[in-house]
Amino acid sequence: MTEVVTGMDGSGTTAAGPAPAAPSAAEPSVARISNWSEIRARFLANKLAVFGLLIVVILLLVAVFAPLIAPADPLHQDLMNTLKEPSSKHWLGTDALGRDQLSRIIYGSRIAMIVGLASILLACFIGITLGAIAGYFGRIWDTLIMRVADVFFAFPLLVGAIVIILLMGRGVLPVVISLGIFSWATFARLLRSQILSVREMDYVHAAKALGASRRRIVLKHILPNSVTSVVVYAASSVGIAIVAEASLSFLGVGVSPEVAEWGNMIFAGKDFMGVKDYLWVYPSLSIVTTALGFVFLGNGLRDALDPKLR
């Protein structure tokens, strides 16, 4: 593979040089970057996006106010009332230990939200830092970081989670850490590729020509113009992280089995498949709804921020 390492004017090989940007009249001039009111207007015009936002807001409220909303203690075992079908007393029935399913789902949203948001925050933090270094400094840093990213990208999440649990034991923190360190690679790649194009923008050259420090160039010029896509991707990723978190718990490498958590509930319900389907159907629906909510929100943000990406 042959490549020209640094940007230069004109052409490396036979390719034509940069075309003098020609005035063309394809469509009336449309602003490239919109201000916040335009972004908000575009977002609100997107029904699916608003729906997603609504789901996410409701879920956040449910998670925060779980103790006020839940009809019962999610851990309270009522061995006299096990495996009760949904009724007016227990809206979503009870499980094999007589715990109120609705309360467990409500409390389960806390784990989902905490793990989803925290793991993606962690992934963003690692990914943005390393992606920025790789993209801006390039050379050996780029090669090094991107190869490490490849490894993390290819590494199975499940194996990683087992290793972390072996080291830390079960619990919320290990789950957050395993999800975080096994999903930063995508963020780093995304940011790096954005930076590679933003880095060559003339306003970055202009800042350099003025004598701006590297810090200033990265923080004022490069990051604000390259981080949007990462933020948007992060919003959708929260949903994916919640699914992954439930999967880990289902597989027994997530939070402790007694915790009110959707994956645990499905695991407990799977033995009653075809008999007591309410045990696994409602937690599954919760996962799907939550994940979709974040995905719709993320897509809506993307379309609102950059209508051309659609």
């Binding site: 005035p23 063309s24 009249a25 394809a26 469509e27 009336p28 001039s29």
Partner: peptide
């Protein structure tokens, strides 16, 4: 014409390739 003069849009209409 210059940008925004409609010269290309007219052509696209002739070709039937208007967006």
């Amino acid at each position: 014409g210059e940008s925004g003069s409609g010269k290309s849009v007219t052509a696209q209409a002739i070709m039937g390739i208007l967006d």
